[in-house]
Amino acid sequence: MSQLIKGNQIAQNEWTRVIPPTFGDEPVRKQAGKVVMFKLHDEETFTQKQIDATEIPATGKILLPLTVWLAKKESLATRMAAGEIGIVLQTHEPIEKLVEAFDDLNSLPVIAVYVQIFADGRNFTLGNLLRTRYGFKNELRAVGDIMRDQLYFLKRSGFDSYLIKEGRNAEEAIASLNDFTQPYQGASDDVPVWRRVNRSQV
């Protein structure tokens, strides 16, 4: 069971991530015989067949892939209005598609950014842009291959909740949110150190 860190502590995960089914005929890219895990910018996330076949739980708070939301939003309008729907953005999906899909991004109670492999650092840029450029104020959740050693960077990139991957100790991981006390550079959470403190007095 994946554990959620929110507000510097383990928290109850109220949100169920909806994952489209796989049929085995989805296009797979291979390189030297190995499946390529990273999708390129704007590459298709799910086939139409997968989107059509996605079962959406009738009740409760759900995190929907952006593509599924776009395909089914008419039928889900009341649940969206009730605050029961959050959106999952994958790291290869253009952020503009998410932004354009909503009149007000802050109508979403939560946006989750999904990484398939932790070496994919695009989530940091996405988090930063959602906070600083698009003014998203609600919960920004890191999901997917999330481990302790990304937490500090995720926090500085605007994330405030982290779904630690299964089998990892989330309680111990909390400490890494504060691995460093006084970072050098500006990020979504703060200005550069020289604007933060008077270094000639340190």
Binding site: G121, N128, Q150, R156, S157, P183, Q185, A187
Partner: peptide, 9 residues
């Protein structure tokens, strides 16, 4: 550049 959070990976 040291521990730049956005450019860590």
């Amino acid at each position: 550049s040291t521990f730049h959070p956005e450019f860590a990976l």
